[in-house]
Design a protein around this nucleic acid. Structure first.
Lengths: 334, 334
DNA sequence: TTGTATGCGTTATCAC
DNA sequence: GTGATAACGCATACAA
């Protein structure tokens, strides 16, 4: 049989309450008894039952990570970051994939909380913006943190990077190389980051005194084929761009494919840049110039916020990092 | 306050035990009372507490997925497959990343079981082969299923694809195209699939009457750079291969990169094939010829096995599917 | 600093 | 078919 607190208390010669005190690191336990209890715990290889603790106390030692994202890499980064913090905290992680657009999302979230009584919830984009789900969490008064929310930044604790600034820097980098006709492929409209990245692109052009030309901007869906389609349109223009900046790397891969098909030599004939959303960049040929995103760190920070229950309702980590790789070059002399 | 069974029983005018019976779909409940109870449950939006059920009963309505794999895509497929089955079963999924080589793995697994009392465990490769972890599971007599185990296939229920057959078919395909000098890059030695794939390659050569040449076979580590290194060596040979078959797509991407660097025109000068382990294939240029793997389906089947508690101790799903894309071609006339 | 009595929300046992 | 009552393993309130 699994040992219980009773077994431990018997072996240590104290009451169960005292064992409980030691387990929960409460104060008012003499050094001496603490050591005896810990010895008994180790000897019996005792591990408290989460179920019993949940039922009797107010903690379940579990949190849930709710996500809906099509990029395995993104999810993996998020999970890893959150998990690392959970490990430090001795808390288990419940994986909760979902459809952010589902009409039953709120009910699913409510059910999750009621059944599991998790101590907190982490939402990753784009579930961050499902208002009905947030309502449900708040109704139950359960702590939650959002990663890269697109709306209502003030509504809860959240972490995010500065997408506009990152896009601005990448665009500025391309301008510094001599590019003047810079194509841009927008991300999926359900991600707020898409707008911010476009804004950063425009801001950099403005500052450099380059006119914004709508024809150089194409919509995309964050996937490979929309990147292909956008690239076809851009390269068909009478005076095509000498550089294309895609809002993520799946789309950038689409751009590369089109360039290859057209026999363009990269990066001589065309520079391709992108956000490294899925870590695909280094495996493409040529390797992409990308904005590397600190997704894992953001996720870790989100979990940290959850456990620390910081008072500050809005805690934004503005993090970005520009990584320049080999595939950008000055535009052709022409 | 959250409603409890008591609230439901009061509203339905029955005892708590009867409510419990309905909740657990036990027999011996009259149609009439069942309907009344279900109405009360719906009305109150009642959801039983997992913690209480775990404590009182013998089920926790949670299973754990233990994994250690560096490929986000692989993990994502596994999680998705398992999750889908859990959803049907009304069971929650605990994510448990780990280091399969850690000396404390067994202890971690034991702790997981003791604390959470999960109803079952799913292990994905390569954690499937950590004997100490399996010992721990068996000591606690908890059901578990392994996905693509490398060793001791008879030890537990497991699901896996037929790697040898798949590699055989791909190799045969290349031979049918006219290739005679076919390079092969082996996978990481800690994955049993690596050996099986090599075996399938050899078997196809044998059947076609082509001599096995060790110089055409290079070791790899399932990552991009080991694929690069192997390709360099293969293409440096006096009479280099006209096709290279890599044991996964990360390595195949490395091969492509080397080919591009050397100015080879693909697939005219070189055919490249691989196992589609990370779903990278379609995003490379040119797209790879790959063996597509039914990872998600395997994971779903694993979870199904867990819930069905099939008697058959060894249940191998032999599944594979060969997908031919545009990038293989007959070898150069030379 | 430590111990005792009580209850968390559900299932199990055994009676009716 | 249904219900009373005792667990389950721990934390809480309160007492000592």
């Amino acid at each position: 049989m699994r040992p219980t607190i009773k077994d431990v208390s018997a072996m240590a010669g104290v009451s169960t309450k005292t064992v409980s005190r030691v387990l929960n690191k409460e104060r008012y336990v003499s050094e001496d008894t603490r050591i005896r209890v810990e010895a008994a715990v180790a000897q019996l290889n005792f591990r408290p039952s989460h179920a019993a603790r949940t039922l009797a106390g107010r903690r379940s030692f579990q949190i849930a990570l709710i996500y809906d994202n099509h990029s395995p890499h993104y999810i993996h980064q998020i999970q890893t970051g959150v998990w690392n913090r959970c490990l430090e905290e001795g808390v288990r992680l419940l994986a909760q994939p979902c459809d952010a657009a589902s009409p039953t999302l709120a009910e699913e979230v409510g059910g999750l909380i009621d059944q599991t009584q998790v101590d907190g919830v982490i939402l990753s984009s784009p579930v961050t913006d499902a208002a009905s789900a947030l309502d449900e969490l708040e109704r139950r008064d359960i702590p939650y943190v959002r990663i890269s929310p697109g709306t209502e930044h003030g509504r809860s604790s959240s972490v995010s990077m500065d997408d506009a600034q990152a896009a601005d820097e990448m665009t500025s980098h391309l301008i510094a190389l001599g590019h003047r006709r810079i194509g841009f492929i927008i991300g999926h409209s359900n991600h707020a980051a898409s707008d911010l990245r476009l804004y950063g692109y425009r801001r950099a052009l403005d500052r450099a005194g380059i006119a914004f030309e709508p024809k150089y901007v194409r919509p995309g869906l964050f996937d490979f084929s929309s990147g292909e389609a956008a690239a076809e349109r851009l390269l068909d223009l009478p005076s095509p761009p000498t550089a294309i900046f895609a809002s993520n790397d799946d789309m950038a891969a689409g751009v590369l494919t089109v360039a290859h098909r057209r026999g363009l030599s990269l990066p001589r004939d065309l520079s391709v840049a992108g956000f490294d959303d899925t870590a695909l960049a280094s495996q493409l040929w040529p390797p992409l110039t990308t904005v590397r995103q600190p997704t894992r760190d953001l996720a870790y920070a989100a979990a940290a916020l959850l456990f620390e229950r910081e008072e500050d309702p809005v805690h934004r980590r503005l993090a970005h990092e520009l990584v320049i790789r080999a595939s950008t070059a000055a535009p052709p002399a022409a």
